[in-house]
Amino acid sequence: MISQEDTKHIAKLARLGLKEAEIKKFQKELSSILNYFNLLKKVDVSNVEPTFHPGENYFKERLDIMRQDKAESEKPEKVNKLIEAAPDKKKRHIKVKAVFK
């Protein structure tokens, strides 16, 4: 069972402003899901490497795909649409709450 304090901490890390009732609900639900994961304790993984990506073995040579660190220009219509999507803006700038006082 994970504690209420831990649940609150996780919610804060996840940037979810949960209500007290939600914290209680998720505390219970997460505990039961985490309990299910105890199944994995049975598996011996000593000397086993992790697989972070399904392509790691099938297509190894394709894993490291790099491009030049150069900005690619986009058509102005697309740029306008991206700016248009922002909830708060001033002309062509996206407004964000001040980070520093």
Partner: peptide, 30 residues
């Protein structure tokens, strides 16, 4: 969505990463 974000955040958080996330990626290899 909240439930899964909470679960994922927990599995990746300091102190649990090895026991949950990394362990899962190793069993994935098996």
């Amino acid at each position: 969505v909240k439930r899964r974000i909470m679960l994922g955040t927990y599995a990746l958080s300091a102190g649990y990463y090895d026991a949950y996330y990394l362990k899962a990626q190793k069993v994935r290899t098996l």
